[in-house]
Design a protein around this nucleic acid. Structure first.
Length: 213
DNA sequence: TAGGCCATCTGGTCCT
DNA sequence: AGGACCAGATGGCCTA
């Protein structure tokens, strides 16, 4: 699953967006275009997703079809022009100053670049969550941990490990004893993971035990 | 069908 | 000035 991630550290992603000073059209090179394509986003995420409210709402292209679907870009550029006008009108009608722009970075371009950075940032957060999931013991049959469940379980796991260290006992013996007696840790960690899966303390301990065998 | 989860967009704020 | 970070809004997908 991890192999599906692309390297978003490459600056070329952002360089895909540029402003063509020779015309009034906003240009997007294929690399930049991909980032507004929901199909690519699905490939970046290991889990099923999600809408795309991006600049190209009609762009539902699989990765391999990009080269043969460049025409919609021109249409989208026209649509962006309308959007730009609407945004300006909105500012004027509400008595607000126009959205910030600079000579070389129109608002639209700035906004799209910021969206790309934000997506990249969220991808890095998600990859960190994936890494964290790999360190939290769960049963194989348990379904994919949500982000909140991952955090809660990680807190509980750390609390348990801390208790084991403080006990000075062999981890396996400590876990076995807790499994029999029921855990009464002092850390008051949040064991309940949305009350759905992986929330059972018993399961957690059994899971933990599995890691020792 | 309601609720949970998630990705994305967006504007504001802070930092470099 | 531009990027990072954050939180709110929105809409799609899935499940009970």
């Amino acid at each position: 699953m991890d192999e599906m991630y692309l390297d978003f550290e490459q600056e070329s992603v952002l360089e895909g967006l540029y402003w063509d000073h020779g015309s009034t059209d906003f240009k997007v090179q294929p690399e930049g275009y991909l980032l507004d394509c929901p199909s690519l986003a699905e490939q970046l995420s290991p889990w099923p997703s999600f809408p795309c409210q991006a600049i190209f709402p009609d762009a539902q292209l699989p990765l391999t079809d990009i080269d043969t679907h460049m025409l919609p870009l021109e249409v989208s550029a026209d649509m962006d022009s309308s959007l730009e006008e609407l945004l300006e009108e909105e500012c004027l009608s509400q008595g607000r100053p126009s959205r910030p722009t600079s000579a070389h970075q129109p608002y639209k371009v700035q906004r799209q670049a910021a969206n790309v950075r934000e997506r990249r940032r969220m991808l890095s957060i998600n990859s960190a969550f994936e890494e964290l999931r790999g360190h939290v013991p769960t049963f194989p049959y348990e379904k994919h941990l949500s982000k909140i469940d991952t955090l809660r379980l990680a807190i509980a796991y750390i609390a348990l490990l801390s208790d084991i260290l403080l006990s000075g006992r062999h981890p396996q013996a400590y876990v076995d004893e807790c499994t029999k007696a029921g855990y009464r840790g002092e850390k008051k960690a949040a064991w309940n993971t949305s009350g759905k899966q992986a929330g059972s303390l018993q399961h957690f301990y059994l899971s933990l035990r599995q890691s020792y065998y």
